[in-house]
């Protein structure tokens, strides 16, 4: 039996929404952040540049406040059930900052690859490293014969390309067209996604 790893994008996949626009709401920049996020998902702005800019805009938010906001975001229940029944082989792969998502990740209960923050106490100082999703897949290759990747935006493209089974997910918004072209499967809700995952 092959060992199979499941790599899930976080925003718009496990979370039924986007973290950064929700954080931006607390400092009255929701629309601006949503625009930047949408352009990034579509691949109009490279993820790393966009992420550094967006984090800069959000850096005034205390880390504890950001964690509280992130922890209240709705999760896709079918995917959470799947992850929790395959905890040892499920991985969240996200560009988001480790300090913002820490309590959420602990609650979900699986390993997470994320960007890393420089911080001091409750204050965000900047970005230490930006997650390159293909690196997560490469590191899992050492432990797994087969990798299944699930995502919805262009920042998931390299992760899907490096996987053996690529799934474009449209549960929160339609997956971007160029990502669909890289996918073996396309699904539009968590139940459909779990049908595919259950047969891997």
């Amino acid at each position: 039996m092959q060992r199979v790893a499941f790599c899930f994008d976080l925003d718009g996949t496990v979370i039924r929404g986007e973290i950064l626009p929700h954080l931006a709401r607390s400092i009255d920049l929701a629309d601006e952040m949503q625009l930047l996020t949408t352009l990034t998902m579509q691949g109009v702005i490279p993820f790393e540049h966009s992420f550094r800019l967006r984090v800069k805009l959000l850096s005034e938010i205390p880390i504890s406040t950001a964690q509280e906001i992130v922890s209240k975001l709705p999760l896709e229940s079918n995917i959470i059930r799947f992850i929790q029944s395959h905890k040892n082989d499920s991985y969240l792969v996200t560009g988001n900052l480790d300090v913002w998502i820490k309590p959420l990740i602990e609650r979900i209960g699986c390993e997470c690859f994320s960007s890393e923050a420089n911080y001091s106490g409750d204050r965000l100082l900047g970005i230490k490293s930006v997650m390159q999703k293909e690196h997560a897949v490469k590191s899992l290759r050492e432990r797994y014969e087969r990798i299944v990747a699930i995502g919805d935006g262009m920042n998931d493209a390299m992760m899907l390309q490096g996987a053996d089974v690529a799934i474009a997910y449209g549960g929160f918004r339609s997956p971007v067209e160029n990502l669909v072209r890289l996918a073996h499967y396309v699904v539009y809700n968590g139940s459909g996604l779990c049908h595919v995952l259950d047969t891997q």
């Binding site: 669909v180 996918a183 073996h184 539009y188 139940s191």
Partner: peptide
């Protein structure tokens, strides 16, 4: 578990079918 294999005009087929059967799996 419904799997719909799509190719020609896949976007149109997926859009139409997913409205009726949101949990359909599309195999490209």
């Amino acid at each position: 578990d419904l799997r719909v294999v799509v190719g020609f005009q896949e976007a149109e087929v997926m859009e139409h079918v997913s409205k009726i059967r949101p949990d359909a799996v599309f195999v490209r």
